[in-house]
Amino acid sequence: MRNYKKSFGKLDLSAGARYDYRSFNGQPAYIDTLSAKYPQLYTGSNTSATGVIKQFDALNKTFTGFSGSFGATYNATDRFFLKANISRGFRAPSISELSANGPDPGSQIYHTGNSSFKPEFSVQEDIGAFLTLPNVSASVELFNNDIENYIYQQQVLNPDGSAAVNPNYPQYTVFTYTQSKARINGGEVSRISIQPHGCILKTTWPLLMAKT
């Protein structure tokens, strides 16, 4: 991670950059469904034996990506300043998002992953104005975040709209991970008042919108 900062009079500039590398290397896993009351990990060599099923495929994935930011702050006065920032983010899919394939007894959900997922990339812009007076501080902030390959869970439905279940676990509804574009935008207006007796009162009005 590299960071840089430079000032030009009332204007402060800052920038940072980062490169991420993430690699997964997993072996296939088999389950023995007959040797005990509950399925157990099969460690034998005969993977075609009766009752032995493959639970997880081999997984070899590598994800790389650049992320960084560039921001500016304009100090109009000692009490008022403006700031703006644009940044690019990176997130590799997690192991569960790539390879999940099993029931969760606590939630009665059968989770399935997708090994073909691409990493998430986001671009966020935000801008804000900040005022500081002897007894009052106020701010207004707005942001917009566009995410490419956003990963989230979605319930699997049958053609008639009913919840799909796993044949081996009919009491478990199926949820799978999926990817799409997403946009999150909003803002916040806040005010902090410092009363003469030392009491601090803060009022915040958040504004948030999300779209996938």
Score class of each variant (00 low, 15 high):
Gln179Leu: 02
Ala58His: 01
Gln108Cys: 12
Gly71Cys: 00
Glu141Trp: 08
Pro159Leu: 01
Leu41Ala: 14
Asn158Val: 01
Lys211Asp: 13
Ala36Gly: 05
Gly161Asn: 05
Leu41Ser: 12
Pro196Thr: 06
Ile184Gln: 01
Thr50Tyr: 01
Val136Tyr: 00
Ile192Arg: 14
Glu125Phe: 14
Gly89Ala: 14
Leu131Met: 09
Leu201Glu: 12
Lys6Val: 10
Ser69Ala: 15
Gln179Phe: 04
Ser139Trp: 01
Ala29Asp: 08
Gly106His: 03
Ser67Gln: 03
Asn166Val: 07
Pro170Lys: 04
Ile109Gln: 00
Pro206Trp: 04
Phe117Gly: 00
Phe143Leu: 12
Thr43Lys: 13
Ser99Asp: 11
Phe56Leu: 04
Gly102Phe: 06
Gly102Asn: 04
Gln124Tyr: 03
Leu207Asp: 05
Val52Glu: 03
Thr64Trp: 08
Thr43Ala: 15
Tyr30Arg: 02
Glu125Asp: 10
Asn114Val: 03
Met1Arg: 15
Ser23Glu: 14
Gly198Glu: 10
Val165Pro: 06
Val156Tyr: 01
Ser122Val: 00
Lys202Ala: 15
Gln40Phe: 07
Gln195Pro: 00
Arg183Tyr: 11
Ala84Lys: 08
Asp32Ile: 04
Lys83Ala: 09
Ala15Glu: 07
Thr64Cys: 09
Gln171Pro: 01
Ala72Leu: 02
Lys83Arg: 11
Gln40Gly: 12
Arg18Val: 00
Pro134Leu: 03
Lys83Thr: 05
Tyr150Asp: 12
Tyr150Leu: 07
Leu142Cys: 09
Ile86Asn: 09
Ser94His: 03
Asn185Tyr: 14
Phe70Tyr: 02
Ala210Gly: 04
Gln27Met: 13
Glu125Tyr: 15
Gly161Leu: 07
Phe90Arg: 02
Ala29Ser: 14
Asn101His: 10
Ile53His: 05
Arg22Asn: 15
Thr203Ala: 15
Lys6Glu: 15
Gly68Met: 04
Tyr42Glu: 04
Tyr42Val: 08
Asn144Cys: 05
Thr204Asn: 11
Gln153Met: 06
Arg18Gln: 13
Ala129Lys: 02
Lys83His: 13
Asp32Ser: 09
Tyr172His: 01
Thr47Lys: 10
Ser48Met: 14
Leu34His: 13
Tyr172Gln: 04
Pro134Ser: 12
Arg191Trp: 12
Thr64Pro: 00
Tyr19Ala: 06
Pro159Met: 06
Thr47Pro: 00
Arg88Ile: 03
Ser122Cys: 01
Asn158Thr: 09
Thr47Phe: 11
Ser48Thr: 11
Thr73Leu: 07
Thr43Met: 14
Leu201Asp: 12
Ile31Gln: 12
Asn101Ala: 07
Lys83Leu: 03
Ser115His: 08
Tyr30Met: 06
Lys5Cys: 07
Tyr19Phe: 11
Leu98Ala: 02
Gly51Thr: 10
Arg22Val: 15
Ile53Cys: 10
Ser139Asp: 14
Asp12Gln: 15
Gly9Phe: 03
Gln154Tyr: 06
Ser115Val: 05
Met1Asn: 15
Pro134Lys: 08
Ser122Gly: 11
Lys202Ser: 14
Val174Asp: 09
Arg91Val: 03
Asp160His: 08
Asp146Leu: 14
Tyr110Arg: 04
Gln154Asn: 10
Tyr110Pro: 00
Phe117Ala: 02
Pro167Arg: 00
Phe24Thr: 01
Ser45Trp: 06
Asn145Tyr: 03
Asp32Asn: 08
Leu11Gln: 06
Tyr152Asn: 08
Asn149Glu: 10
Gly187Arg: 00
Ser190Lys: 09
Thr50Lys: 05
